[in-house]
Design a protein around this nucleic acid. Structure first.
Lengths: 210, 210
DNA sequence: TCCGGAATCAAACGATCGTTTGAGCATACG
DNA sequence: CGTATGCTCAAACGATCGTTTGATTCCGGA
């Protein structure tokens, strides 16, 4: 839990490794990206990875942790503002889930992380799944509980199915980002709003259809 | 270029390699599964892969070709029976797309292939994407054209988005198979029908929402 | 029966992988 | 100033990778 000064760490060796790792893991996969490519891209010595992270596997975990801590705390914050409230709509909950991910996709190199995440889904690696489930499973559980409240006519089994399908669609969409290109006459911000509205409407239709 | 007797080749070395490759690629990825594991699992000599397929990359292509030829010809056959007809519904077209994949998922080791396919989506490998696009892109184009006919109120851009999202959901669902377990009191056949109906309703809602 | 191409085999090739080592360098503290 | 500590570095380690080689076995047709 320590990890002092999460922000404002611009040029340290650890940060340079993490950024290069995120890009190369997204582009070539966890096995496909070697530590030699990685450290060369980061401009650091080969041994620096094992010195600072212990092993390649622990580096992979840190790549996830850096982004998911931020992403999931934003999702939880957005959800806690609306969960259980009377006027809350399905679209509100979906917005709390989707918008933080879109914000992440937009900033500097965060969009690459979504591709890393998509790879993690495709890999049915038990170690990685266990790590993700243990550290971030409660987020998905909270959202599912809120979906259940707003969709009382669905059985638990039915709801799990639909949430799973929506998750697949969103992961696929965000990792294969850029299907819809931003028109030159709209700002980045409004484009993101439009994309969010798009995904939310699709997910709402899939979740709540009769 | 021969490739005589495509069917009915039960015990040949090539077939044993292809089956073992499908399983190990699904389980450990294309890089993660080595030719030594693969040939050991198949009970053949290490050099047999390069003798019969030329290289590991060409073996990967053959793994795709063997299943996708069958899958896509069934999809095209089902589509051609309903495309352009007056009474055809959106659900009919989706059934033509989904049911052949479910049939494939069900038989002997076909379900593993869906995981291989999901990996191929996650990998943004250009060589593999080009291979899939060149050989099977026309199928997706035909289905999209029929969707466009049945959903005339959607712009081309809007339609592409929704088709992409539906594709992501289905790929995710079929590769992560087993979310819904078959109850012991329903037959395999009716379970498959129920699953198909489920996916079709979800996809129809996502495609046609206002 | 003998021959010739197809198929299989053990063994080795060079390359690259993740990881470790031990010396060298820096900076801060007594 | 001397030294301890945190970090970087080139080099090497053993393991494993995809691929190739050359000998051996198999088997149908003249």
């Amino acid at each position: 839990m320590g990890t002092a000064h999460l922000h404002s760490a611009p040029h340290t060796t650890k940060e340079r490794i993490l950024s290069a790792a995120e890009e190369l893991f997204a582009r070539h996969g966890f096995d496909g990206a070697s530590l030699r490519q990685l450290t060369a891209a980061a401009g650091v010595n080969l041994a620096a990875v094992n010195y600072h992270f212990g092993s390649k596997d622990r580096l992979i975990e840190e790549v996830f942790r850096r982004r998911l801590d931020e992403l999931n705390s934003r999702r939880m914050a957005a959800l806690s503002r609306i969960a259980g409230q009377e006027g809350t709509t399905l679209e509100d909950v979906l917005a709390a889930f989707i918008k933080p991910a879109l914000d992440l996709s937009h900033d500097d190199s965060g969009s690459l992380f979504m591709r890393v995440l998509a790879r993690a889904f495709a890999e049915h690696d038990d170690t990685l799944r266990k790590f993700l489930s243990e550290n971030y499973g409660h987020v998905m559980r909270q959202f599912t509980a809120e979906f259940a409240r707003l969709l009382p006519h669905l059985s638990k089994e039915e709801l799990y199915w639909r949430v799973d399908l929506v998750t697949g669609a969103l992961t696929h969409a965000m990792s294969g980002f850029g299907m819809i290109q931003r028109k030159s006459d709209v700002t980045e911000h409004t484009h993101r709003e439009q994309t969010a509205a798009h995904l939310i409407r699709f997910a709402a239709a899939g979740l709540s259809h009769p």
